[in-house]
Design a protein around this nucleic acid. Sequence first.
DNA 1: CTCCTACCTGCGAATCATTCGCAAGTAGGT
DNA 2: ACCTACTTGCGAATGATTCGCAGGTAGGAG
Lengths: 171, 171
Amino acid sequence: MKIGARETERRMERITSAVKAAGVKLTIQRLEIFRELAASADHPSAEAVFEALHARMPTVSLDTVYRTLWLLTDLGLVHTLGPRHESVRFDPKLERHHHFVCLRCGLVRDFESAELDALRVPASAARFGRVEATHVEVRGVCSGCARKQGRKSGGRNDKEPKGGKGSNEHE
Amino acid sequence: MKIGARETERRMERITSAVKAAGVKLTIQRLEIFRELAASADHPSAEAVFEALHARMPTVSLDTVYRTLWLLTDLGLVHTLGPRHESVRFDPKLERHHHFVCLRCGLVRDFESAELDALRVPASAARFGRVEATHVEVRGVCSGCARKQGRKSGGRNDKEPKGGKGSNEHE
DNA sequence: CTCCTACCTGCGAATCATTCGCAAGTAGGT
DNA sequence: ACCTACTTGCGAATGATTCGCAGGTAGGAG
């Protein structure tokens, strides 16, 4: 599904200006990928963007689509649903609970809150179907990352090249 | 990190009774996997459970660990962080928003809510670090799935063997 | 407008997490 | 003790991403 032309334009402008500001080259493939994504009303996978594009530009590679999407993610212009490509984590806590997620290292910690368990669901959400529960994700920077903040950070998940011991504690 | 022995026991009982009730065989490897998971205070990956187990049971296979973890997931005794193993979805919506997630087909729809944007974060969550935002995931069954409900459902994500057209609309 | 060079792209090969296909093993009811 | 359907352990598939490089090409300098 696609969104209106006006909104698409708005997104395109926001994206291209941010990308230029970041000092990255504006190639045709990138612009087309931006456009495809900007016009999307849902949450396409890289493959979906690639296929939609393939009609217009038979030469783009899936790889370039991935690289461009991650570029936008790094610039904060798009987000991903759920954690990025990693192994699945299992949560054994039986009680109803919510999560604190560190935007820097990916750490996930549980916490309980009767208040959040009983959230009032707005009509804008209820209209999609039958609601069974609400789950809150509190996003921020964990104390661990806050302490050792000295790097300029920025990159997606800031993954260190090799062997670093402290990254990605999805715990 | 591990949780207390008392809580671990409580989880073990809950798991074994539910598993027996489901008519599944209780093998040694399953019991050990249950124990490992039940004692965990965080969100281990299958690989992590496998490695922790490997010391005690050098013969368990990673495959069995996966099968057992998914078995528990299907029984609702553990949950996964984020969607299960699939391709990453990109969300191009720039405005602050939340998600309605269909537990049946995985469909994800956006919605806005000023009220949910400004959620009060409980101290139990704030103590983990600096809070930057809250994101609410409303879980339920989308109208599409509610309509075509006639199958017994049950299995994780209810993925139809082959070619079904309507599954997994992560849109 | 042309030239240069750092940044990009396309591809095929490489990774990684996860799952399959099967032969051999074993809970647990009888 | 005995059956048998449900389980395991492997090694070989899969699928999604990413890498390594040999060309290409934006776009600032001249």
